[in-house]
Design a protein around this nucleic acid. Structure first.
Lengths: 162, 162
DNA sequence: GTTAATTGCGCAATGC
DNA sequence: AGCATTGCGCAATTAA
């Protein structure tokens, strides 16, 4: 996740070679429907134009014909498959996580609603009681005014606090 | 998003042909580093073994040498890139959604905690007051007990109710 | 039927 | 040396 550079034509290797044909048009190429893989005579690294007899090319590390190459490719293909599988799995899990969290959220919101209601009921009860006190505690007296004792934050509803 | 079948060797077309070499080992093949693209003589659809002179193969729809082919490929490559970009973007968004939901969840839980506490305090107050009533209603009572009405938000009662 | 979108796959470059 | 990731192109399939 860093390099993103890569022109259109990636290819060539000292020995083995690939080539991704990608020019806008390439009709003249592939005279007979070939998959495009130039096949020039091996040349020594020096570029002196001396043709190497294709025998023992230093280390056939990059030679596409060796078993070693095929083995590496195969292993890589396997790794790729594995990696992609994991990636897909992860994405799937993430999606699932979203669903779970959404559900959880709904539960929590419901609970909040419930608690808020409960709280408001209790507060109302308190108020009522306070009024009763105000009405009864006093001697016969006269009509008890709305002497609100204990009127802290409440009043039908929810004190958000958010 | 349905079929998942696809053996190892996918290839061949009436005219154009591909071939994904995928046999465990293919050293004997590619005598000279070719990219494997068999090149047999075109045969008429009837399968009668009659070789077609490779001139005007019906419609060069699948011929890899036509401009039309290259255009299709290019368009598809573009579509593929686009599709993958979207896919990646979506995954990213989903991940972000998870983070947002997690945060939201924390907020909600905090709120629940707060409400619960408030509620428990109120309930305790209620109980306390009820006791005071029971104790005081009878005799003239004595000094003011801890009957603190109006004592909101403090006191570490605890009455989760979950 | 044509075109765009998806998907699986192999290759090579690069990361670790 | 070796697996893991990632961008890319090809072809088959599936939606539009």
């Amino acid at each position: 996740m860093s390099k993103q550079l890569q022109q259109k034509i990636s290819s060539t290797d000292q020995n083995g070679n690939s080539v991704i044909q990608n020019q806008p048009h390439s009709s003249a190429l592939n005279p007979a429907g070939l998959q495009q893989v130039p096949q020039f005579v091996p040349v020594s690294p020096g570029g002196g134009g001396k043709a190497t007899p294709l025998s023992k090319m230093k280390k056939s590390s990059t030679d596409k014909n060796t078993d070693e190459y095929r083995q590496r490719r195969e292993r890589n293909n396997l790794a790729v498959k594995k990696s992609r599988m994991r990636s897909k799995q992860k994405a799937q899990d993430t999606q699932q996580r979203v669903d779970e969290l959404k559900e959880e959220n709904e539960r929590l919101e419901a609970k909040i609603k419930l608690l808020s209601k409960e709280l408001s009921v209790l507060k109302d009860l308190f108020l009522e009681h306070a009024h009763n006190l105000a009405d009864n505690v006093q001697p016969p007296a006269s009509g008890g005014g709305p002497g609100d004792l204990c009127n802290n934050n409440n009043n039908s509803g929810s004190n958000s606090s958010q």
